[in-house]
């Protein structure tokens, strides 16, 4: 393609007649629109980064200055401090500090990423490479569950955890108050439809010959799963696990319902502080940055997987 373009361009550059044939005004116009386009691009880029920079700068300014002067007057009102971070990590409610909620976020996010991925990979393998009656129908049903907004499931699921009831009939022991258990399980369930669907697409793309060859050699499903499917789909699994990690870390709704009190993650505490101390900008800016640091680190470290994972899961919610 590129060689083709070059050969076509070459005669035009050497033959001045072609150049002269083009009116000068149109040339100027193209250049002008390009300049406008560059300007517009710079404007968008600025609009998209300046608010974040303002937050970052403010989080390091002394509280008194944050309260009275804009962060863009940084050079007139010089001053840097890390006190805001020390203060916000100790801020919170009667049960929990911001530092504690940061730890909670880690404790919620890691298991809520590993568990659904393992279960979804297993189910996706069965859907892709095992034969059974009603398979297509079942798969379509799992796929269709993506339509259901999690709002439909929140309250009944909470009741199942709190009272062990399905349709008002008690079926299991209640474990609503037992630490992170219910938020882990809730995130696992909400991740499954999309995870099964996406991983199935990748697992089904493995060439049939490879699986057949393994079968002829006498490999069982367990061996095929471990020796062939897992290594070949590792990039897809990595991409999805990053998506799931960020989704759980950034989630607020599931946390509000299933992670109350002492097990609340940082997003919930941050939202709470925004409500109760909405004008303490030195705290809010530092708190927001503490919550953002993990996703941003993941973003910059694993960009390639990150983009792929986000593309794949963009419709979740």
């Amino acid at each position: 393609m590129s060689t083709l373009a070059r050969t076509e361009e070459a005669p035009a550059a050497t033959d001045p007649g072609v150049r002269r044939g083009r009116p000068a005004a149109s040339l100027a116009k193209t250049r002008l629109t390009n300049r406008w386009a560059t300007l517009a691009a710079l404007l968008i880029a600025a609009l998209w980064t300046v608010p974040t920079i303002g937050l970052l700068v403010s989080s390091f300014r002394p509280a008194q200055q944050v309260r009275t002067t804009g962060w863009w007057t940084l050079f007139q009102n010089w001053g840097f401090t890390t006190d805001n971070y020390a203060a916000v990590l100790q801020a919170g409610n009667s049960q929990l500090t911001m530092a504690g909620s940061f730890i909670n976020s880690i404790a919620i996010t890691l298991p809520a990423t590993v568990i659904p991925l393992v279960l979804a990979t297993m189910a996706a393998y069965a859907f892709a490479w095992m034969r059974f009656p009603g398979k297509d129908l079942l798969f379509v049903l799992v796929f269709a569950l993506q339509i259901v907004p999690i709002q439909m499931a929140l309250v009944p699921l909470l009741r199942l955890f709190a009272a062990g009831e399905l349709f008002g009939v008690p079926v299991i022991g209640a474990f609503g108050q037992a630490g992170y258990a219910q938020v882990w399980i809730a995130h696992t369930i909400f991740a499954l439809p999309l995870a099964i669907f996406l991983l199935h697409n990748f697992i089904a793309e493995i060439p049939n010959e490879i699986i057949e060859a393994a079968r002829v050699d006498g490999a069982s499903h367990g061996q095929i799963f471990f020796r062939i499917v897992l290594p070949l789909t590792a990039p897809a699994i990595a991409a999805f696990s990053i998506f799931q990690f960020l989704w759980v870390w950034n989630d607020l709704l599931v946390a509000l319902i299933f992670a109350d009190g002492a097990v609340a993650p940082i997003t919930k505490l941050l939202a709470e502080i925004t409500g109760s101390r909405g004008q303490d900008w030195h705290l809010l800016t530092a708190g927001a940055f503490v919550a953002m640091i993990v996703p941003l680190a993941v973003f910059f470290a694993l960009q390639r997987y990150f983009v792929r994972g986000l593309m794949a899961g963009s419709a979740k919610g």
């Binding site: 608010p51 974040t52 303002g54 937050l55 403010s58 960020l246 870390w249 950034n250 989630d251 607020l252 997003t267 941050l270 939202a271 925004t274 909405g278 900008w281 809010l284 800016t285 708190g287 927001a288 919550a291 953002m292 996703p295 941003l296 993941v298 973003f299 990150f306 986000l310």
Partner: peptide
């Protein structure tokens, strides 16, 4: 895209 909606909300509230 990497920032939570909660974080983005605080950025814009500011």
């Amino acid at each position: 895209m990497a920032i939570s909606f909660v974080g983005a909300s605080i950025i814009w509230r500011f």
